[in-house]
Amino acid sequence: MMSHAKAHDLQLDPAGHLKHLLTVEGLSRELLTEVLDQAEGFLGVAQQAVKKVPLCRGKVVANLFFETSTRTRTTFELAAKRLSADVLNLNIAASATTKGETLLDTLRNLEAMQVDMFVVRHAASGAAHFIASQAAPHVSVINAGDGRHAHPTQGMLDMFTIRRHKGAFENLRIAIVGDILHSRVARSEIAALNTLGAGEIRVIGPRTLMPAQVESLGVRVFEDLHEGVRDADVVIMLRLQRERMSVALLPSEHEYFQLYGLTEERLSTARPDAIVMHPGPINRGVEMDTQVADGPRSVILEQVTNGIAVRMAVIAMCIGTQNRRGQGAVGGLDD
């Protein structure tokens, strides 16, 4: 798999407009703010009697999911449909690749069907970047999660949710709790929070679930949950990713809950108006208590709604960039 060190170069057209969204790393504060502002506009589409706008009429968006997903895939699908695009859902794990077709063959076939955008989820870090580097110039690629690397639309929908509740990022204390090591969500959130100028970013979890040199990401590290959430404005819980753990990093889920599970009592040191977030799906009784998940400070379901608006913004911005460069002509101009 290719290095993703230069992903940010690939993401923008020569005029600096968003062409692919592969990672939030390397994107400017202005661009991230533009995504949030555009999402604000798209949130209103759900209030219309006809929950659809004609922006991407005649465009085809292919969801390429090499890894299973329900929420991310369905919200991408809804986002594309609310923009009036046509959507293809390809569950690649169960299709051509098992018959021996290579990834590039699959891409070329979809390009031959005049697909305008690939939304890609893959277990390998750098997969979306690889596809973007190989795709025809008129095709945009959005990363819907690649290995442990990045999940930029989840990161941005969390920023959107935070901004809607808390306003400016400068004075906020944000605590991210759990399996930082395996979490592409945490990586994207930390990158976005740093770019948007968040006051203080904390990561909380057992040392075995922290990446090496985690401090170099610009975060404060806590092993104690009680200390870590003290005076926090935002508490983001991460899902325990058993499927990505190759060795036993945890004694048991029960013991994990005893130390890092969020309960109302443990939340009591956070600011009284703190919000609690989780990218889903929640393991109730492992990452958090049901009382917290369904409690007044939980904005978990709002994250799902916001995810549609943020994904609409990203899809529309990328397709708009393609339109600007020449009506998305197949095999057209080179960049």
């Binding site: 506009g41 949130l43 589409v45 004609p54 529309a316 911005m317 339109n323 600007r324």
Partner: peptide, 28 residues
Amino acid sequence: DISYYRDDFSRIGMHPQVRPSHLPVTVE
């Protein structure tokens, strides 16, 4: 706000400043 219904999106892309439409009462 008419940004999502403009006929020049296919040529110039997203309008940089979209303000949400706000219809406090149904038009029905």
